[in-house]
Design a protein around this nucleic acid. Structure first.
Length: 558
RNA sequence: UGCCCGGUGGUGUAAUUGGCAACACACUUGACUCUGGAUCAAGGAAGUCUAGGUUCGACUCCUAGCCGGGCAGCCA
């Protein structure tokens, strides 16, 4: 029911209900056309992924279209680097916009012409108030504003002044073009909002062609209209802007898309605002936008997330108008769900403890191991076994706690895909008392798959042969913040100081040699891991994407 | 002390649009297991913000409150 494919059940939400109704009424002649309109001033995060899935998903399910449109109306904040990263991220998620890659800046001339027509209709005027004055005249949330003394300039003067603004005759910030609406409106957005500001900044697409730039409210709705968008889906904070969105379009008498707002995604134990993410990057709390701890799409990708898991997650969280806080556990569940079915199993020891099997001959034996018990089609592989192996330090306890069924003195345990061994001796460092190695004996009759192998032991542990191991670095990640909701001004105080742990002495199954960045595996009993971009043949580096569910950790805790 | 939006288990999202609350995650228990994984089974958990009203019947409609969020960039 919760598995979704093209022919399966579609997610239900209030936006799709509106569209269903529109279709029933034959609104827009049955057309459905959405758009994803990022501002290229930062990297996309998982909240954007929700929006991408919503917009592109609706287009797909209703046989419509979804445009990719960059809302690039503020050249002082926007950069080409971000445009490229956004395209890369959307594509990686699996969505296509064909030739419909648009930019609000493509419409600067059209917007300018629209503005002229509004001036001619007496619906817009050039205002000479300073920024400070504009704020004063705007009034407050509870008090109405005052009309600008420039509000009643005649059309000719407005036309002349606006043309000269565009021609660069005035310094930055000297004048603005404002819509003439209602300074007493209870909705502050309707108090003669600014349409254009004078700003000399080189735009990443239009260069120095313009020295006036449209504001969001003036650019966005008209861009939607120009593109023939039918449903303009945005987040809740634009709800108060809808009357203005509608006003501009009605004054212009152009195609009227319907703006619909939904609640943005909030994920526990992380922050989602671009401003804060940028701060984490700039202040060095993370290594970059693609740090595997970041909730950015590029970060999640480097961490080892699959596009499919993100898509599934987006379906599961739903779409509504109420504020929400999604438990990261749901994200992790979506990931495990996906990786469980497709990740190749492999053995790796993160914190090695040497085990010597005293009665095992000095040879190397090749054992069969299943690549993925969930998918027989993935086949099997050979893994080398020998007299000396590494096991996880955690899998041996000199004094085993209650219900511990791994290795301990006098106890038996199965080595996955190999034999049952019994611990006969513990060797410690004279000085530190630290356990340096453990001696065991094996039972040759218990080889995996053999007739005698039916003997049952409580535990099975993973291992890696000492002389046939790959040395590697493994990076363990934890949540970036130690509190569920790091809101407030002191949000940085709740940064988790232990969000990254680097292990330098890990031993991996030799079959992992040559693994490429982004390749994903399950390290048996540990979790899902992927090859990091920093990895090299000489120095393999793996990221822990997410651990496996760990029932023992729960038992031990309680 | 203005305007806009919202309020269903711990967290999300549903409820044939007025017919007696479901699904997922999380949690608990058990089965199974050569991954303490996966899988399977069972269970606890909201009576739908409150108070009135309409109705045979209200999570759905009405009224009044309460609580939460957003809005006063020449940002988007």
């Amino acid at each position: 029911m919760d598995e979704k494919n093209i022919d399966g059940p579609k997610p239900v939400n209030f936006i799709r209900e509106i569209i269903d109704e529109d279709l029933k009424m034959n609104k827009n002649s049955g057309r459905v056309h959405t758009r994803f309109p990022p501002e290229p001033n930062g990297y996309l995060h998982i909240g954007h992924a929700k929006s991408i899935c919503l917009n592109f998903g609706i287009a797909r399910d209703y046989y419509g279209l979804c445009n990719l449109r960059f809302d690039d109306t503020n050249p002082s904040k926007e950069e080409l680097e971000y445009v490229e990263s956004i395209k890369e991220d959307v594509r990686w998620l699996g969505f296509e916009w064909q030739d419909r890659e648009y930019y609000a800046s493509d419409y600067f001339q059209q917007l300018y012409d629209y503005a002229i027509s509004l001036i001619k209709k007496g619906k817009a005027y050039v205002c000479d108030l300073t920024g400070e004055e504009i704020r004063e005249y705007r009034g407050t949330l509870t008090q109405p504003g005052k009309e600008s003394p420039y509000r009643n300039r005649i059309v000719e003067e407005n036309l002349d002044l606006f043309t000269r603004m565009r021609n660069g005759e005035f310094p930055d910030g000297l004048r603005t073009l404002r819509a003439k609406i209602d300074m007493t409106s209870p909705n502050v957005n309707m108090r003669d909002p600014i349409m254009y500001r004078i700003l000399r900044a080189t735009h990443h697409r239009t260069g120095d062609n313009w020295c006036i730039y449209p504001m969001y409210d003036w650019a966005h709705g008209q861009s939607d209209s120009i593109e023939g968008i039918t449903h303009s889906i945005c987040t809740l904070e634009f709800e108060d802007h809808r009357p203005l969105y509608d006003w501009f379009i009605e004054q212009l008498g152009i195609h009227h898309p319907q703006q619909i707002e939904f609640a943005r995604l909030n994920l526990s134990y992380t922050v989602m605002s671009k401003r804060r993410l940028l701060q984490l990057v700039e202040e060095g709390h993370v290594t970059g936008w693609n740090d595997p701890r970041m909730p950015t799409i590029t970060g999640l990708r480097r961490r080892g997330y699959t596009p499919e898991s993100l898509l599934h997650f987006a379906d599961r969280i739903g779409v509504a108008k109420r504020e929400n806080m999604i438990d990261v556990a749901l994200l992790e569940d979506s990931l495990r769900n996906d990786l469980n079915k497709r990740a190749m199993r492999v053995m790796a020891v993160l914190r090695p403890l040497k085990v010597i099997i005293d009665n095992y001959p000095d040879t190397v034996e090749e054992l069969d191991a299943v690549n993925n018990p969930e998918d027989p089609a993935m086949g099997s592989r050979k893994i080398p076994f020998s007299r000396e192996i590494y096991i996880e330090q955690d899998d041996f306890r000199e004094v085993p706690p209650n219900k511990y069924f791994r290795l301990s003195p006098g106890n038996e345990v199965r080595l996955r895909y190999a034999y049952i061994i019994k611990c006969v001796k513990v060797v410690k460092d004279d000085k530190t008392g630290e356990i340096v190695e453990v001696h065991c004996t094996y039972d040759p009759e218990t080889k995996s798959g053999s007739s005698q192998s039916q003997r049952k032991v409580k535990g099975t542990i993973h291992w890696v042969s000492v002389n046939q191991a790959l040395n590697a670095e493994v990076r363990l990640y934890d949540r970036l913040f130690s509190v569920e909701d790091p809101g407030g001004d002191d949000w940085k105080n709740s940064l988790n100081k232990n969000s990254l742990e680097i292990l330098n002495n890990c031993r991996l199954e030799i079959n992992l040699a040559g693994a490429k960045p982004e390749n994903r595996y399950q390290f048996e009993r540990l979790g899902y891991f992927c090859v990091d971009y920093d990895s090299s043949i000489e120095r393999p580096i793996f990221n822990r994407t997410v651990s496996l569910r760990d029932t023992w950790a729960k038992i031990e805790k309680s």
